[in-house]
Design a protein around this nucleic acid. Structure first.
Lengths: 204, 204
DNA sequence: CTCCATATGTTGGCGAGCTTGACACGACTG
DNA sequence: CAGTCGTGTCAAGCTCGCCAACATATGGAG
């Protein structure tokens, strides 16, 4: 025991730091003005790097935006993951709690509210819809990992399908709620619960 | 309001990250073997950096060691600063609490205990004695700042003298205790309290 | 419609910093 | 005494971020 926790090497840490600094700079900027009015030059300057470094790291403005929403989404996934792990003994409740905590958090998040206010001119909407492939894929991947860890008896393919649908539903309901978070969570769980239970029951 | 909290620019953050990574690597290594058996190459490799980068950043092994003890000492100063700020209304108690919290924390710290076990062959002892100029200066500087902030009526020179003596006494008692922490703290406070009170009273 | 301003994306040249490999020096060991 | 190991230094090479400039939309003002 007591072996080194394998410290992250400096070059890797530095790269992550660069990305984080840039993403954080965008986050700060968005607190004051909409997405469309934040230029790449603004972000670079706020992060203390040149515009070209920003382009080299993320390629294009869209890609940068995708990386941004992916990272912001990861914050929600922290809460979701926690909710799932807290109810590993009861999959039905786990699903409902996870969905509820996500919708509640999303409804309160200032960035999410900014997206909802978007009349189409602020340009952030595509990032969570037509351009949201990385966001959906990343979130589904991570959610699938959590469920696969907690319920290893389920087939991976089943879990991945469920995870992706959950993510898509979550985004959809976050953008266009039909009722209070807990009601929506209950409905979705009613809809998908049987599938999950079947997947958990059918030991291969 | 709401203006940016002036995010630390990436180049500066990267430099700090480099130093921290190297210092942390040394800290990890010291958990397994004594100072003298940790080579510069070990540290560089663990940090994911070349040996020359380590030398360029810190110059020499001694300087690296000094930077190391300075940073480790800063952790104690966090606790000390908190103790002082908690008793700004009663300087006497502030001194005693600060000294007590320091000695107690030091007595429990694994790195400090390692220094105390040093029979002279492990090579870490000079860093807190003959080579400790940066440590003493840095700690005294910071402690003086804390006191100057809390008691602005005291002359800066008085505060700086007191801070340096406190630091030197603290190191001395940490290395060679004469009794339990609270007793020592009380004694030192009895000794230096009058000076502090006079400095606080003598409004210029 | 034209002209100007602004932001995105790209390119080439430049400098700083990290790396590799080698070497001199001193200390410790067989 | 030779061999080994760690410190400290150097030169050359390369990566990466920086700067300056440019081409290309897009949008607004006259």
């Amino acid at each position: 025991m007591a072996s080194a926790p394998d410290r992250t090497p400096y070059p890797i840490a530095a790269r992550l730091l660069l990305r984080d600094t840039l993403l954080d700079a965008m986050r700060d900027a968005l607190a004051q003005r909409p997405w469309a009015e934040v230029t790449m030059a603004d972000v670079a300057r706020a992060a203390g790097v040149s515009r070209q470094t920003l382009y080299k790291e993320f390629g294009t403005r869209d890609a940068f935006g995708q990386a941004f929403v992916v990272r912001e989404g990861a914050r929600f996934l922290d809460a979701v993951e926690q909710a799932v792990r807290a109810h590993l003994d009861d999959p039905h409740t786990a699903l409902e709690a996870a969905f509820d905590v996500f919708l509640t958090a999303a409804a309160e998040d200032p960035l999410v509210r900014m997206v909802l206010r978007d009349d189409g001119t602020e340009g952030m909407l595509p990032l969570v819809t037509t351009q949201s492939q990385p966001l959906v894929a990343g979130a589904a991947q991570r959610l699938a990992s959590v469920m696969h860890d907690g319920w290893p008896q389920a087939a991976l393919a089943d879990v991945e399908l469920l995870a992706e649908c959950l993510v898509r539903l979550a985004i959809s309901y976050a953008m266009l709620p039909t009722g209070p978070a807990n009601m929506t969570a209950h409905s979705v769980t009613t809809l998908l619960g049987p599938y999950l239970e079947q997947a958990l029951g059918e030991q291969r």
